[in-house]
Amino acid sequence: MDTLQNMRIFTLVAEQRSFSATARALNLTTGAISRAVSELESRLSIRLFNRSTRVVTLTPSGERYRHHALRILAAMDEAEREARNSQELAAGELRVTISEEISHLRIFEGIRIYRRQHPAVSIALTLASGIPDLYRGEADIALVNATSLPDSGQVARHLTTTFNVLCAAPRYLRGRQLPLCREDLAKHECLALDAAGCRPREWTLDDGNRSFRMRASSMLQTNSASILLNATLDGMGIGALPLSTAVHGLQRGELIHILPGYRANVTNVYATFASCRFMDARVRTWLEFIVTYLRTVVEADKAALTRNASPVQTGVCA
């Protein structure tokens, strides 16, 4: 940094052709200006100026060095301007990693809306399992689904809470007794989702007051919400489907809501990022957008789920 400062002083002396005029312009003493130039000459092992009591002129070596110094200082100024702009203007590529379990939350629709607001930002979206290490540069921000987050040193913000919904296709229920309380589930194929917030082959049912764990007895277990949806639609059993996925099937009549008095596998959605300090405008604007967007999506899905609930299936056992 001393070398760069001395370089700036040198170029100004060359422009002013005066040590005293440069000192006045920088609000420094003439001695400080002279020492800066002398330090630079010692570092370079050349004489930059011909000095006399009345005039200061560049040596041939000083003229060549001034040409390069101006280019270096201009590049430094441009780098600083670009860095400052990144705090103010959302532009460039934003690397977003999301858990597959929350990809159903209309993330792609959200990206389209965000880009209409910030057209200078492009999105590099990656589906991943687990929580990425943002300190290693794997992403700028991550959206993850978990009951709680481990202590990783990364900053986290809670975005919303979501849950799974017990559903079955009409073809599966044909000829079978409709479950009216959770004990009835033991008589059915319960398709298991092995994902964040879910224990393998286990459901956690929540009636709003208490939680109950039960084994999901099934010939199928998958870590993919889309595979679970297809298996449920195909009549393979009762699936604990992500809220947004279930709503679409219920509205189209392809699924029947089982035990609407219960929520399955309640989990939280978080945004994680490396630091709140000097947050890049791309990350800041995306975070501000996604927290409002996801909460709106989840609340709309909850309302749609309530509208589709059948009063016949509201049984909750003590």
Rank of each mutant, 00 (worst) to 15 (best):
A231V: 03
R35V: 15
A264Y: 10
T11G: 02
I72L: 08
R43H: 15
L125D: 14
S45M: 09
A240F: 08
L89C: 04
M1W: 11
S42I: 12
A304N: 03
R284E: 12
A23Q: 14
D234F: 09
Y172Q: 05
A146Y: 04
A304R: 11
R47A: 01
L205S: 08
H257S: 01
F10G: 01
H188L: 09
A32E: 09
E109V: 05
F289Q: 03
T161H: 05
A240H: 02
N145E: 12
I227D: 10
L127V: 15
L12R: 06
M7Y: 06
T30Q: 09
Y172G: 02
T3E: 11
D234A: 15
F289E: 01
N230I: 09
G249I: 03
I98F: 07
L48V: 02
L287V: 04
I33N: 01
V269M: 08
E82N: 10
S20T: 09
H67Y: 04
R252D: 00
R282K: 06
R66A: 00
T30D: 00
F273A: 08
L143F: 04
S103A: 12
L255D: 03
R182N: 06
C181N: 15
D77Q: 14
N230M: 13
P179H: 07
L191Y: 10
T204Y: 01
Y135P: 11
S42Q: 13
R176V: 07
Q251R: 15
